[in-house]
Nucleic acid binder design. Structure first.
Lengths: 192, 192
DNA sequence: TAGTAATTTCAGTAATTACTGAAATGTAAA
DNA sequence: TTTACATTTCAGTAATTACTGAAATTACTA
């Protein structure tokens, strides 16, 4: 398989971007290729399309699998393994966030918690302690927020995102007004 | 300056994490050290505390400066440059997001826009085109959301984050009820 | 303006990470 | 089982990135 210039551009870009993250060029390109590919690809096809060795592709796919970003399947009368990315792009986003959280945030939070248990011995440690506490609380707030919205179904989440800060206007009314419902419920202060 | 075990742990952790991002170990450690440090540090002190060469520290500080994550100042009767991180952790977070956006998101969006201008020539390109459009729209939605909430002052943003998905309950009422204000305003359908 | 201290640059080297090809292992049909 | 692929592993090598020390530049002081 030879890549058309259109796909070429896309795939190469993700190669570059990959190396800007921790992920390497190969892995970025493989993922991009699978993402835009019409049909599932086997390792041989990927290697040929990207000009990597077969073994390199094998390692790249293993890496992607550890990120839970690929799906593997078999085709009738073909022993080779075929790979795709999830159809739903929101599944991809959610997986990415979860994995990065697991690999980057969780260990950091745990290091901070452990460190914060120690009693500061001097003013230097006192100051460091306070700064770490601040960082800990901020990360915790952000991850709690994500844990919460991540539970929403996609359609609702999209609505919330599209609303952005505008929803805050509504929130402000909570304290200014008593909101009288037209149905069974009645929203009063403290409901939220 | 010798680092106490407490600081050591913190600084080393950010070294490791740094290399998990595109940022290298040195840069991660320098930043962590400045973050927890009680007072501004000069390059010499940083080099000594972390065991790096003076020139390496110089390059690291330059890198951090390009991320706008450090502040430089002078002390009375001292020609050396002293470095700190911003006091307000929210400034740090906002800067980080902005810079990552500039370096990673914006180029990607621009590549996608350029590519999407091309007319797909076959079914393969057709499919790729559709997938790229999907990615483009999603990234745009997320960045628009960020652009929007990023304008809020920190206190409000924190409120919004703490509310999480709960605010959505309020949003739902919008369609079910007519909300009657106690002041001048009245919220009706279409206000948001 | 010369002299000195501080910082940056950069060429060379060290360390790390990426990649390959060959061998080993796994897997399914005959 | 045996055979014929398919996939993974891994040691060796290539490529990249990180780091240092010396030299050059910049900035301040006297």
């Amino acid at each position: 398989m030879k890549l058309s210039p259109l796909l070429q551009t896309f795939v190469m870009h993700f190669g570059e971007m990959g190396s800007r993250w921790g992920i390497n060029r190969t892995v970025g390109q493989i993922y991009a290729l699978l993402y835009v590919s019409e049909k599932p690809l086997n390792a041989e096809e990927i290697a040929e399309a990207l000009g990597f060795s077969r073994s390199n592709v094998s390692m790249g796919l293993k890496e992607l699998d550890s990120w839970r970003l690929t799906r593997m399947q078999h085709l009738p009368n073909d022993r080779r393994e075929y790979f795709t990315t999830p159809d739903d792009i929101w599944v991809i986003v959610r997986t990415l966030v979860e994995e990065r959280r697991k690999r980057e945030i969780d260990p950091t939070l745990s290091m901070l918690r452990d460190t914060l248990l120690q009693i500061p011995q001097n003013s230097q440690e006192e100051h460091a302690h306070a700064k770490m506490q601040e960082m800990h609380d901020l990360i915790e707030m952000l991850t709690n927020w994500y844990t919460d919205v991540q539970k929403m179904e996609t359609e609702r989440l999209v609505n919330l995102l599209k609303l952005g800060s505008k929803i805050y206007k509504l929130y402000e009314f909570k304290d200014k007004f008593t909101l009288v419902g037209g149905g069974k419920s009645k929203i009063t202060k403290g409901t939220l």
